[in-house]
Design a binder for these strands. Structure first.
Lengths: 150, 150
DNA sequence: CTTGACTCTCCAACGATGGGAGGGTGCAGA
DNA sequence: TCTGCACCCTCCCATCGTTGGAGAGTCAAG
């Protein structure tokens, strides 16, 4: 199977297939006589696994750990569950942050008459003296990103 | 006010202060005789505004629009409200996606006994034949990131 | 004058992804 | 066989917001 077919079969873009190989998330694919990557059904299954984990918001490093467990017959399901639940907690944390943002914005927007007049509580709220109104934001820096590709 | 003090006063890191200037989000700061950036109270207020908008998950481009509105006395509050509500919708979309991930993961984890045995429904769920179980993921690619710095 | 804390600019990295250039390959049809 | 097209290869660059460091200059206190 060529890389294009593998891409269609897994939902992972050609670019990402090469990238995952480059960063060592998956083992380098075999090559044809002319240097084309060749994928087996086993490879395809693994890549589908990777894609689903990405869809669930796992980061590549976490997926590497999951792949290890997946391929290791001696794993304990507790290890997998622990990884998964750690991730759930992280997602829930992000969710709380989103909730807070949404709440604040909705609150501000609710007090904005939204007509042609220039005075707007959203802007005055944003330029208020203290913390982001009305609740304080978390203090720890964080940096998250995720993507779902279809 | 030097850049370090401005950073403390606004909660924006020194690095980001220079970056925001570089990308044109804020006007270049005045300079002292020796080339140090000097910030006025007005600058500080503007930077606080920027930081709060970032805390609310606005992207830099959106903040630029907000800053325009903030500084433009002739703005219509409807414009601000519209921007804010657009953003709320985007945040809500992200939240739905998070919810779906969390739901799927919790469902999988719930069916995992989580002991020393190797068989684990989380892994088998991830390697299932079809879409990410149990619900299909969204099809459109998306790429989001946010940060809160304290 | 030295020392340390600050500042400057420039360059690189992160994470995951997309885009494109410039070149080789494989296969089908004329 | 030649041509053309779709595919593949490896590079490099851009994104977005942010951090880190190197190498050099500046400021103020001791």
């Amino acid at each position: 199977m060529n890389i294009g077919e593998a891409s269609k079969a897994t939902g992972v873009s050609v670019k990402m297939l090469r990238y995952y190989e480059e960063i060592g998330l998956v083992r380098p694919a075999l090559r044809s006589h002319s240097g084309y990557r060749v994928y087996s059904e086993k490879n395809i299954a693994m890549l589908r696994f990777v894609r689903r984990a990405r869809d669930l918001g796992f980061q590549v490093k976490q997926i590497a750990a999951l792949l290890d467990l997946w391929q290791n017959g001696n794993r304990a399901s507790a290890d997998v569950k622990s990884l998964a639940l750690d991730h759930v907690r992280e997602l829930e944390q992000r969710r709380r942050e989103l909730d807070e943002m949404i709440g604040t914005l909705v609150h501000l927007a609710h007090h904005c008459h939204g007509d042609e007049r220039p005075d707007c509580p959203i802007l005055t709220g944003l330029s208020a003296q203290n913390e982001t109104p009305p609740k304080a934001m978390k203090k720890k820096a964080l940096h998250r990103s995720f993507a779902a590709v279809g």
